[in-house]
């Protein structure tokens, strides 16, 4: 199981272009196909991961590892998701620094970036609505939309720091739900 966790997150780590939220889609797909955690658990894990410092993707990996096989699992999946970044950055820093201005590389990123945008939108969709069984017009749904819109306004309009927003929405959650 530990090797399994390690390799799944190693695979995710290799293709985690765009970091953070784009990777959530990758992780969610992998985890769902393996049946390691159900979608309710996944939501809880991501909420916890969002509260801790560090990349939300790495934190999610840590928590999924911990949920499925304890501390050793957490170490295995965290190592798995970080190792490819480490190796790839070292290789680029050592050999391919000049590639940065290369036209092929630029064209590749020209095509890759919209895909990453797609992954992030899908993550928003899936995390916001997906796997929800109750009616769309429930109290929970309404509360979620209200907090979500509030957060968007707080960050874009009032320039409040995302971590403060997360804390405030925890309080709002206690009041509403």
């Amino acid at each position: 199981m530990l090797w399994h966790l390690f390799f799944v997150f190693l695979k995710v780590g290799c293709i985690s272009f765009g970091g953070g939220y784009a990777v959530m889609t990758l992780i969610q797909r992998e985890v769902a196909s393996k049946g390691w955690v159900d979608s309710g658990q996944f939501e809880e894990i991501v909420a916890l991961a969002g509260m801790a410092p560090g990349s939300i993707a790495t934190n999610t990996a840590t928590l999924i590892g911990y949920t499925t096989s304890g501390i050793a699992g957490a170490v295995a999946s965290t190592t798995g998701i970080i190792l490819p970044s480490l190796i790839i950055v070292i290789v680029i820093a050592a050999f391919f620094l000049k590639l940065q201005g290369n036209a092929w590389v630029k064209s590749s990123f020209y095509g890759l970036r919209p895909v990453i945008t797609g992954l992030i939108i899908y993550a928003a969709y899936h995390f916001g609505l997906g796997g929800r069984t109750e009616a769309l017009l429930s109290w929970t749904m309404l509360g979620t939309v209200v907090i979500c819109v509030g957060c968007l306004i707080a960050v874009t309009h009032f320039k409040i720091h995302p971590f403060t927003v997360i804390l405030l929405s925890a309080i709002a959650g206690i009041i509403i739900f």
């Binding site: 979620t144 907090i147 927003v165």
Partner: peptide
């Protein structure tokens, strides 16, 4: 309840990330 609130906030942050990424990619 607090986690549900955070869940909503994370959705908002993802939407922001998508918007930012979209602006530099589309």
């Amino acid at each position: 309840a607090a986690l549900k609130g955070i869940h909503a906030a994370v959705v908002a942050l993802i939407i922001m990330a998508a918007f930012k990424m979209g602006k530099s990619s589309i």
